[in-house]
Nucleic acid binder design. Structure first.
Lengths: 365, 365
DNA sequence: CTGAAAGCGCTTACAG
DNA sequence: CTGAAAGCGCTTACAG
């Protein structure tokens, strides 16, 4: 019989009975709200531990109207950055006593709203959204924290992509590069636009930068098509600044396959410090977001919104949390970016080694 | 006043009042359980829609003792495979009416149990675990589905890693390869061991395969160290079969940097079809898991366990779901693996091009 | 076919 | 400082 009791979880009422007090008192003691005498409080907590008491979130949720669960919606859960986000958000939320429910919009804009709706129906108190490029989050009648870029209207917090771009540009300038190609996917991403804007700002008046849009090339040549980077090298480009490590990886392999050596012949840099950045050869110089900090701020902001909602007119308005909307990025210098060497002869050298896969690339126009 | 009512969500009681019936009947009509007359049922559902009724999961959870939330715990949420898992699990769970709460064990074995505990405290009805290499999941007194490898005790469902290995081995044999190197991380992963075992089985008596353990090399040379693959090519290896696309990527870049051309000089293959497999140059031949199917089966099994728990002695025992513990993998042939060409001269050719980063690699012993 | 009632586990004013 | 009571929204036997 004892076993039977052990099997089903103890609840407040069990503790109350065991101690001959009321559940209200037990509840107060556990939450530290209503004042309970020191000794009774201690006795209750002890008994709770003894019985292996675990509060029922469902019961609490029902009476407080708050689930202590947050939703996390990403434009594309399949994106290689998702793990970093998920890990950081989960950690920050967990520290604050919240669980994280995932929603997937599979890269589909319309599905994004449905994912958010589902999360809300599931009772999420608030939602963290890393929106799809060019999407605007509608008012969903519940707290939302948007992580995108400072230039996105309604953005809550994000890495300082623009300045990250500036720093990356400066890094390349310091290495002696004066003609670079910036590689992006498409122009409707605020994050990419900011990074690109920053790089160009750094180069303004000090060197020239041209743009390679992968998305456009793929639209005509098909996914995974060569980007024609070797030709750019022949034209004098000495560095490729990709706005994502994924594109940087693509550039590195295409260049290597074309016989261009990195960083001896050209430099390549990326963004985000994705999983492979440290292990490919050469290892990739990249610009990393401070996910921990971003997640912390997003969660703090969300929780503030949630609590303000609960406080309503009762308490004096909670002061809005002061936080920077932009969190600095960090340059991780690795092997793929190096000083400009004697590259004048490179054009010839590269063309000699060019092999089919990349040499057949049409113009990067 | 109408607005006020709209603002706070409608509940069963609102519907009941509006129609002059009892909440029990409304509940029955909505769930389709107790029999309710056709017309009343229709009227109720109509009114529910009109009022924008969204059931309260908290209320339901409290009365049924089931949260309809599942936990997803991965050894390492930072693993590049996590997005695939998360997406597939989220989808399958969502189809079955369950939400997915994420837990992160940050690659730490002990943290894995704590992550599971936290998820349970949050009320998860069951847990999907993709365990850390070499970990055994303790009985947590709640339904669990383990996704690892068929050779893991207690495994619920997984890709057929062994056979995937066999198929990959055959693919390489068909291309004419007779001497290959298999690249793995470390030997305490069942998944890796199965994949390796399969490849070796295919090669048994038909060619030779040697093993490169990245983990061991890194322990002595540091993370991201060169793997000495060019030397292996000089010794006659014509193909590298990595048990993960991450290692394949490392191999490809190291070989390319060393002046070895892929697939003209050697073939490289991977596993998992990670995000970059299709876009690097050359694109990567790999073996893909059927995540959708695996997730479906894991979720179905989990839900069966959950329902059996509820049914208890009442109903006749639910028949256990019949499912294959091993889901076939699929070979994705891309450019990185090709037929063996005249490679006799390769040894010299490669050594000529070798550059510092990889040429200084010590023995892969 | 429909409804009254109890209960899931917790919190929160309100009395004492 | 402590407790009795109501209520959060739903479900589930059990009557009618």
């Amino acid at each position: 019989m004892n076993r039977v009791l052990m099997a089903s979880r103890a609840n407040l009422s069990d503790i109350a009975k065991a101690l001959g007090v009321s559940v209200a008192t037990v509840s107060n003691a556990m939450s530290g709200k209503g004042r309970v005498s020191q000794e009774l409080g201690r006795a209750i907590r002890e008994k709770a531990k003894e019985l292996g008491y675990v509060p029922s979130l469902a019961g609490r949720a029902l009476s407080t109207g708050r689930s202590h669960v947050l939703g996390l919606v990403l434009a594309d859960i399949g994106h290689p950055l998702f793990p970093q986000f998920a890990q950081a958000i989960e950690h920050a939320a967990s520290e604050a006593g919240y669980g994280v429910l995932i929603g997937d919009s599979r890269g589909d804009v319309e599905a994004q709203s449905r994912a958010i709706d589902r999360l809300i129906e599931r009772g999420a108190d608030g939602i963290v959204v890393v929106p799809r490029h060019g999407t605007r989050i509608a008012d969903i009648g519940r707290p939302v924290a948007v992580i995108d870029s400072a230039s996105t209207p309604g953005n809550t917090v994000a890495a300082d992509h623009w300045n990250g771009g500036v720093e990356m540009g400066r890094h390349l300038l310091e290495l002696g590069h004066r003609s670079i190609a910036i590689i992006g996917l498409h122009s409707d991403s605020n994050v990419q636009n900011d990074r690109i804007g920053g790089i160009r700002e750094a180069f303004f008046g000090k060197g020239e930068s041209r743009l390679v849009w992968i998305g456009e090339m793929e639209r005509s040549l098909g996914s995974g098509c060569p980007l024609g980077l070797v030709r750019l090298v022949e034209e004098g480009v000495t560095a490729f600044a990709a706005v994502s490590d994924l594109h940087a990886l693509r550039a590195i392999t295409e260049l290597q396959q074309g016989g261009v050596s990195i960083p001896a012949d050209v430099s390549v840099t990326g963004f985000d410090d994705l999983i492979w950045a440290g292990v490919i050869a050469p290892s990739l110089t990249t610009m990393r977001m401070n996910m921990e900090r971003i997640a912390e701020i997003a969660i703090a902001d969300l929780i503030w919104q949630i609590e303000r909602l609960n406080a309503a007119e009762t308490a004096p308005a909670l002061p809005a949390p002061r936080h920077p909307g932009r969190v600095p990025m960090q340059l991780i210098m690795r092997q793929s970016s190096g000083p400009v060497l004697g590259r004048s002869a490179l054009g010839d050298r590269a063309s000699v080694h060019v092999r089919s896969a990349s040499s057949t690339a049409t113009d990067p126009a």
